[in-house]
Design a protein around this nucleic acid. Structure first.
Lengths: 339, 339
DNA sequence: CTGAAAGCGCTTACAG
DNA sequence: CTGAAAGCGCTTACAG
């Protein structure tokens, strides 16, 4: 009777060895693709494994080898933001290409949860961790993870001034470009919409201020509205901006998501972005090309950012002693309808 | 000298045992939270573990127990679609609450990749798999995974007529409601925009046809435009619809994403959804509340869908013999500006 | 090129 | 309540 697949008693290399008439060491060598075994024998082993429905037991192998697992932990703080979804896709692609599997966790800006998933990844012997840190993460975290012996790449948000592997974007330069673009179009009163306090907001705000300063425009605090970097945040702050006694006709947003919300608010007031009001986003998520109207924004290629983060992490796993690496996406203005 | 954290030689229960002056069995029992050990002893063990920086070695434990890992494989076909991102967030939340870690993979509609990640999850001894199948996945896959001894829940897309755990939505009923809403508003020529061929498109199209039939409106094939369920797809098909010789002023979209693209096309033509044209989406992703204008759509609560999928999978893991379970999100119309 | 033996870090009966 | 011993499925020197 043919052996049907019974999950009850998984096949081990011992059975494969018996079937192929070799010792289990030989089977092990073949499975690892060692060149030490005669091709004829190797084929017989592979045949036996196939026939018996053998499944490689990673845990046993890793335990014996005392090696890290082939998983990489990825911690994202806000998956609902398409920017992070795009980063994630880029990251994942590179990781599976390199033979890794992704352990994914979503922290939703919850520091306690972040601690927990970090611990879990440690227990899983993750080969590396890509972390987009929750707001409020202590700068010492990079050292902590290092002390665990796990390579780490920090993404998007910086973590203090220490030196660590990092993939992000030049936020200040990007927003400065966007702001300058509006200034060049003749605007003097330019709003800034959205963004939670944190390193990224600081950097982007700095770019905003730099552009104004260079143009000799005084900073007007009443024009900057912090808010959650969400559609809702952009929507509310745009309405607040439009309600200002002295009219404003231009704004740069913390990110595209906020800009989409702002577009919605503009529409609600019967205003059309690009003609009645000029608006700049930041990120250039896929959606920006097909919003209503299409969004002018600062392109930092989210997907490539994820790929670069993966490349840095992979290189670090390869060589733990190499110098720290940084990738800072070079911001590029992409002009569409809105601005 | 105090022991500093050296990742080089991980601490084992043997060392903890020595430190606490007990045998390693006792340590093991304490770590598992067994009530067999006197609290005083247990505390001494925990103290020793803490002091030595002991990290639980899951692999060794799982290997010995021959148990599944505490990971759950989640396979998503399109993370760029906020609908799936929301499903994922709901799913992940429930999973970590139950003490699991998520192995995440993105297939991007690539069948070969799906096979590969499924194998990987098998090798990892995933405790369960939540799969949103790639288009073209054979219906037999549910049986295959079952034969591996791994609980499976299928999400969103059905997989043949077999009986299996499933979480999705009542697509036909949802689109029928949306279409009826447009008919009730007096429209007779109603477009259908976007959607790749597959079970979901079939179901939604069926709802569209059912509503027309009930209202005694003849189906006009020239009004249905299949396309990728993306913003670009919605954008292109809306333009094609508007270019039809006989004007059309209403459409239901395959999903919200396509609807957003359609909104963009409408704006480009100087048309305002809600007044010049009425448009319905499907899904009710978060973005729908703040599009320009806010989108009327069919709410299937993506996040809850993910939570339900997790609940079904968790229940199956708990009791592999229980009857098949299905969750079909009950569609609800949410009317905003566009329709 | 192949086989016998030890051991990765845990858990689990089994005695005591 | 605690300890000694076996074993999970692999890999890795070490002989031959």
């Amino acid at each position: 009777m043919a052996r049907t697949s019974t999950p009850l008693r998984p096949v081990t290399i011992l059975e494969v060895a018996a079937q192929a008439n070799v010792s289990k060491s030989t089977v092990s060598l073949v499975l690892q693709g060692s060149g030490l075994i005669r091709e004829e024998t190797a084929e017989r082993v592979r045949e036996a494994a196939r026939k018996l429905g053998y499944v490689y037991n990673r845990r046993a192998a890793e335990l014996r080898q005392k090696s890290a697992s082939n998983t990489i932990g990825v911690i994202i703080n806000d998956l609902m933001n398409p920017f992070f979804a795009e980063v994630l896709v880029g990251l994942e692609r590179k990781l599976v290409d390199a033979g890794y599997t992704m352990l994914m966790a979503h922290t939703n800006e919850d520091l306690k949860l972040q601690e927990r998933v970090l611990q879990t990844m440690r227990e899983h012997h993750a080969a590396g961790i890509a972390l987009c840190p929750t707001l409020g993460t202590p700068a010492s975290l990079t050292r902590t993870v290092k002390s665990w012996g796990i390579p780490l790449v920090v993404m998007v948000r910086t973590l203090g001034n220490g030196s660590y592997d990092y993939a992000g974007s030049d936020n200040a330069a990007g927003v400065e470009m966007a702001t300058e673009h509006l200034i060049a179009a003749g605007h003097k009163r330019i709003g800034f919409l959205g963004g939670q306090s944190g390193p990224v907001l600081e950097q982007r705000l700095q770019g905003y201020r730099a552009a104004l300063t260079k143009a000799g425009i005084a900073l007007d605090d009443k024009l900057v509205f912090a808010a959650n970097p969400t559609r809702a945040g952009g929507y509310e702050t745009m309405k607040a901006l439009l309600d200002l006694p002295r009219p404003v006709k231009a704004a740069v947003c913390y990110n595209d998501l906020a800009a989409f919300g702002a577009l919605s608010a503009l529409g609600e007031r019967g205003l059309r972005a690009g003609t009645d009001f000029v608006l700049m986003g930041f990120d250039n998520v896929l959606d920006a090309a097909h919003s209503n109207p299409p969004l002018s924004t600062v392109d930092i290629r989210p997907r490539e950012l994820g790929e670069q983060a993966a490349a840095i992490l992979l290189a670090r796993i390869e060589d733990p002693t190499q110098a720290k690496r940084q990738y800072l996406a070079d911001p590029r203005l992409v002009l569409r309808q809105s601005g």
